[in-house]
Amino acid sequence: MPTTRSPQRLVVLVSGSGTNLQALLDACADPSYGATVVAVGADRDGIEGLARADRAGIPTFVRKVGQFSSRDDWDHALADSVAAFEPDLVVSAGFMKLVGEDFLGRFAGRIVNTHPALSPSFPGMHGPADALAYGVKVTGATLFVVDGGVDTGPIVAQVAVPVEDDDDTEELHERIKVAERQMLVENVGRMAREGFTITDRKVRFGA
Rank of each mutant, 00 (worst) to 15 (best):
T169G: 13
I111S: 05
T4C: 05
P120D: 05
F196V: 02
T199H: 00
L172E: 13
A157S: 05
V112Y: 05
A23L: 10
V178F: 01
E101F: 06
N187A: 03
A192E: 12
F103E: 03
R175P: 12
G34C: 08
P59G: 09
T19M: 06
L89R: 00
V159I: 09
V90R: 00
P128V: 03
Q8M: 07
L24F: 09
L98W: 00
V138P: 12
V203T: 05
G135M: 07
G195R: 03
G18K: 11
S69G: 13
E194H: 09
V37Y: 04
R9F: 12
F122W: 02
A56Y: 03
I47D: 14
I155M: 01
H76L: 05
M96G: 11
K64M: 15
T4G: 15
A27N: 08
R106A: 13
C28W: 09
N20I: 08
G105Y: 04
P59T: 04
F103K: 04
A93Q: 02
T152K: 01
P123M: 02
P162G: 07
D167S: 09
I155C: 07
L172G: 09
R52A: 14
R106I: 09
A42F: 10
H173Q: 13
G105A: 15
I58G: 06
D147A: 13
L98T: 12
F122K: 03
T169M: 06
S119M: 11
K177H: 08
T36F: 01
G66Q: 08
G127R: 03
L10P: 12
G135T: 07
V65D: 04
A77D: 15
G195F: 01
D88R: 00
V40C: 10
D45A: 07
A160N: 08
A83N: 11
H126P: 05
Q67M: 06
Q182Y: 04
P59I: 03
S81H: 10
F107H: 11
D151N: 06
R204P: 01
T36M: 07
A157H: 04
D43T: 10
E174A: 14
A131C: 14
D73A: 15
R175E: 11
I198K: 08
F103R: 00
R110L: 03
L50D: 13
G195C: 10
A79Q: 01
K97P: 04
G149N: 04
L50I: 12
A129M: 03
V136C: 13
T152L: 02
P120H: 05
R190P: 08
V91C: 07
